[in-house]
């Protein structure tokens, strides 16, 4: 059964459309409310976790890089695990950035619709002011998505569909998307389910590794997990052993492979000393 992922700069509209579609199709919803559950499960500070989804790592913002990546991996692992359940509408959790090319997942970007803010917000707010604020938000989101997942959030190529809400009303968008979700092409198949299961497995392994390590990339295919890491030559065996030990705790791994790359820069710096 299909999964719908929504993304928008206009949080109010995104929330409204997401709720309406879920209600109409009788799907479950997965949104920002899920952060508290994730924070509770991983014993994290809920506010800090939500903050990590908005800011880039910075010591000044009290969010070191290692902690930031760990927080993101917690969200990614939990969201992917929930998406395995199907029949779900998801928004506000950046899922469009880490769920890639799964045939039963429809990714939709909602843009525009600033007139609705004009009507509902403060009376002295003009359309130009709102557009400026949204443009600023877009720039900061682009910065965030480039740092976190190396892609631009506003790039239409990331989505299956982009709907401009300047002319299309929210109810019309809900109607259109609800109909689209019924397309046979979006029905879950064994292949697409396995694809999503592999991504969820890779995210779980990555999460376990990022708790104590840095610089790890994880991929999974049919239960085979490949971890790629970089370190100095003298730390090679220790790092590989740690990865094997930590990743071994995750259920569902059929076979684990660790690919190691030499950290040329640190090696060069150390040899100079």
């Amino acid at each position: 059964m299909p999964v719908l992922i929504l993304s928008s700069e206009n949080k109010e509209l995104e929330n409204k459309i997401g709720q309406k579609i879920a209600q109409k199709l009788e799907y479950t919803t997965l949104n920002q409310e899920f952060f508290s559950e994730i924070a509770h499960k991983y014993t994290l500070d809920s506010k800090k976790l939500m903050n990590a989804m908005d800011i880039t790592p910075s010591i000044l913002k009290r969010m070191p890089s290692k902690q930031w990546y760990y927080y993101l991996s917690c969200v990614e692992a939990e969201v992917l695990d929930c998406l395995l359940e199907d029949n779900c509408v998801c928004w506000g959790l950046a899922a469009h950035l880490y769920v890639a090319v799964v045939s039963h997942v429809l990714k939709v970007r909602l843009i525009g619709g600033h007139n609705s803010i004009l009507r509902s917000d403060e009376p002295n707010m003009t359309l130009d002011k709102i557009k400026k604020i949204i443009a600023e938000q877009e720039r900061s989101r682009e910065n965030w998505s480039m740092t976190a997942y190396n892609c631009k959030e506003a790039d239409p190529g990331l989505y299956d569909m982009v709907i401009n809400l300047d002319q299309v009303q929210t109810d019309e968008a809900v109607e259109t998307l609800s109909t689209t979700m019924g397309y046979p092409r979006l029905k879950a198949m064994t292949y697409s389910k396995n694809n999503l299961t592999d991504r969820a497995l890779a995210a779980k392994v990555k999460n376990v590794l990022l708790k104590s390590l840095a610089d790890v990339q994880v991929e999974a295919q049919n239960g085979t997990v490949v971890v790629t890491t970089t370190s100095m030559k003298r730390a090679k065996s220790k790092k590989i052993d740690t990865i094997k030990k930590l990743a071994g705790q995750v259920d569902g791994i059929g076979y684990l492979e660790v690919h190691w790359n030499k950290d040329m820069l640190t090696e060069a710096a150390m040899s100079y000393r």
Binding site: L106, I111, M161, N164, Q169, E172, Y183, R185
Partner: peptide
């Protein structure tokens, strides 16, 4: 994407799906 009312990616959605989608959108009041 802001230049358009809709952007459709022909990959997961087929040509026929895109056609259905556009025809449905053409009947929208706006």
């Amino acid at each position: 994407a802001a230049l358009y009312d809709m952007v459709i990616c022909i990959d997961k959605l087929s040509i026929d799906d895109a056609v259905d989608f556009i025809c449905q959108s053409a009947s929208i009041k706006a």
